[in-house]
Design a protein around this nucleic acid. Structure first.
Lengths: 220, 220
DNA sequence: ATTATTTTTTAGAATTATCTAATTTAATTT
DNA sequence: AAATTAAATTAGATAATTCTAAAAAATAAT
């Protein structure tokens, strides 16, 4: 079964939105995620339904099928492997990779992906800390919580970010909050929800609620 | 100026056909090079003419403009750099790279190509011996002749192949006639145009006229 | 329970790239 | 030079993706 680039992008967006806890993914959600109009989404949902990668009932919503899930994970696997390549080998900054990986993920060649995976030494996580599915779509993700949800004196390691926008990633670079950094919550301000944290045992910074909500921690 | 993938492919084909010595590139030539119908070519030529990458006069033929030349060479540069990547880093065989490079060449990111070039250590030739244009489109090609045109006792080095079909490349692999191999012409059979050559000072093989015509030699 | 609002879908049109069939132009032959 | 053949182009269709505007369905508000 072959999907077009557009179909792959829709399916990926649907998969991500489904994962985000939302029980039902709406046409509008997809439209805004993919930067298009709801009318275009309706059309595409019909097509994806015909190809049986989603189960679609007009006006009622949709559900990814096992087939759709497998295909979405394949695309995500490719995207994340390319991100590792761009950062590890071509020395891209982690906020520069998304756009290019968005194109590279649509290259069709299973041999290419196998070889790339081996060349990168079978990485398990991409530069943003997101897990890379294996060739069967299996994901081994670490249990993790938002920095915002940690208690005072609790410590852990930054393992991923929810928001991957360049602006956010550059901010994290500036304060030294890269993936792998060890942090400890020193204080939480009830008034505005901001947190005071110690980064890598040397730097104390304040972080707003919005930022802390987008950083995922593996507690220890 | 932005070209679509299809436009890039047409322009590349036109460039290659122009280089092959043909003074005028015909609609049919392009159609068969690109595996499509002459009608589609006519349509596309009109469009490429409007975008001023070729100068096009209906029924009379076309000529690449300097702009078109620059864009074609950019695409060729990308294609050949990716081929080097696939062979050198991902250990593809030289007959497996074309299809994948055909897709990769359309990825849009000048940063990516700069970085890839540096990562590969600024290669000057692709795995088939074809020169890689620099970022300005300049090509430094070596003077070379077809093996078929060499005289008896003349020797040299295989630097490129004209035909890049997997079947041909696999045959060359089998007889040890890879790029860089040193060869010497021992005899030429007038009857069928075949040649007897010594490969790397150890192996004597017979080669048909058709094969010898598709191997390019840097004489010494 | 009607009405109003929001969400979703359809209808119709535009764009890109392709095709087949028909026509037009150029080249070749006698 | 006229007729034939070959090459190139146009006309008209199809498929994929997108859009705007209009219609339909579901949800929320009174």
């Amino acid at each position: 079964m072959e999907l077009t680039t557009a179909e792959e992008n829709y399916l990926k967006a649907i998969y991500h939105l489904s994962e985000e806890g939302k029980k039902s993914v709406s046409t509008n959600d997809i439209a805004s995620a993919i930067q298009t109009k709801p009318a275009s989404v309706s059309d595409m949902l019909r097509k994806l339904g015909e190809k049986e990668v989603i189960q679609y009932r007009k006006y009622y919503g949709l559900q990814i099928t096992p087939l759709g899930m497998r295909l979405a994970l394949q695309t995500i696997r490719k995207h994340r492997l390319w991100e590792v390549f761009l950062v590890d080998k071509l020395h891209f900054a982690w906020d520069e990779v998304h756009e290019v990986a968005e194109q590279l993920e649509h290259i069709q060649s299973s041999l290419l992906i196998e070889r790339l995976d081996a060349y990168l030494n079978y990485p398990k996580f991409d530069p943003h800390g997101d897990p890379i599915p294996d060739e069967f779509g299996d994901v081994r993700s670490r249990p993790r919580i938002a920095l915002q949800e940690m208690g005072i004196d609790q410590s852990g390691q930054i393992v991923a970010v929810k928001d991957s926008s360049p602006a956010f990633l550059r901010y994290l670079d500036k304060v030294g909050a890269y993936i792998g950094a060890r942090i400890k919550v020193l204080d939480k301000v009830e008034f505005d929800g901001s947190v005071e944290i110690l980064v890598d045992q040397k730097k104390t910074i304040f972080m707003s609620k919005d930022v802390a909500n987008n950083i995922l921690i593996l507690t220890s």
